[in-house]
Simulated scan of single mutants.
Amino acid sequence: METAAETGSTFGLLTDLVADGGVVVLSGAGLSTESGIPDYRGESGRKRQARPMTYQTFVGSVAARRRYWARSHLGWRHITGALPNAGHRAVAELQRRGLVAGIITQNVDGLHQAAGASDVVELHGGLDRVRCLSCGERSPRHVLHRRLAAANLGWDSAAGEINPDGDADLDDDLIESFTIVDCRGCGGVLKPDVIFFGENVPRVRVQECYAMTGRAALLLVLGSSLTVMSGYRFVRHAAELAIPIAIVNQGPTRGDAQAMVTLDAPLGPTLGALAAQLCPAT
């Protein structure tokens, strides 16, 4: 563990790197935990037993889709009610000041945008949208939420543990009594517009992130363990191009050996202090 002096020295180096601009942010679930949204692999993730829904399970079973939508119908209230924290606001401010040139997020909660960030590439999609697997039509999640509420009058429950993908732990008997709805246009299966485990990120989106990473003066990883290759590949890409990498995360990450700077610290206070130093009030 670093001493206070070592942590201060690391923070100073991070500040100097970000001050040069051209920063591309790669954010993960750890950035949103201070907004009340748990992650899969951090401290909040280790306390849960639930396994995330896979794409193959979702498309292969009506019962699985009923389970997902019943749990998600409750969990969505929690996700949509979450507010950006100091970390999200700091990233948005650094972008407004011209220091952050791009944002790639593995999160599906929309909190970067809610904090005022623009041109955010949502690597794994967004929970605020729904897609039909047959006709491809995308629609706002709040529209589906109203349809599900209307189809399940009198059905309600207090949500249990909330997962990062927006679903909530729920008893089996409540799940079995839940009614799901299909696409109003073609009757096809509706799926949240997010990448499930076992599903591939669209190639065009991946190439956009590779290109953004390749133009970076610094790749700044925030709140990601980089366990999944989906995000880690951009760290590898930056390393291959000799682009400096800095990581702020609570706990070790898969990319630590490739980073110039690693800081094990809470995201909100750390990024808030970084923005306060680089973006003084005028």
Rank of each mutant, 00 (worst) to 15 (best):
T3V: 06
T3P: 03
S9H: 13
F11T: 06
T15A: 12
D20I: 11
D20A: 14
D20Y: 10
G22K: 02
E43K: 13
R51E: 14
P52I: 12
V59N: 01
S61L: 03
W69M: 10
R77Y: 12
H78M: 07
N85H: 09
A90E: 07
L94Q: 02
Q95G: 08
A117P: 00
V120M: 08
E122N: 11
D128G: 15
R129T: 09
C132S: 05
L133W: 00
G136C: 09
S139N: 12
H145T: 15
R146D: 15
A149K: 12
A149R: 12
L153P: 11
N163M: 15
G166N: 10
D167P: 10
L174P: 00
S177D: 11
F178N: 10
G188P: 09
K191F: 08
D193K: 12
F196A: 12
P202F: 02
R203H: 12
R203L: 15
R205W: 03
V206Y: 00
A216T: 01
G223V: 00
S224Y: 11
S224K: 10
V235P: 02
E240K: 11
L241G: 04
L241R: 15
I243V: 05
I245Y: 06
N249R: 07
N249A: 07
A257G: 11
V261E: 06
G272Y: 01
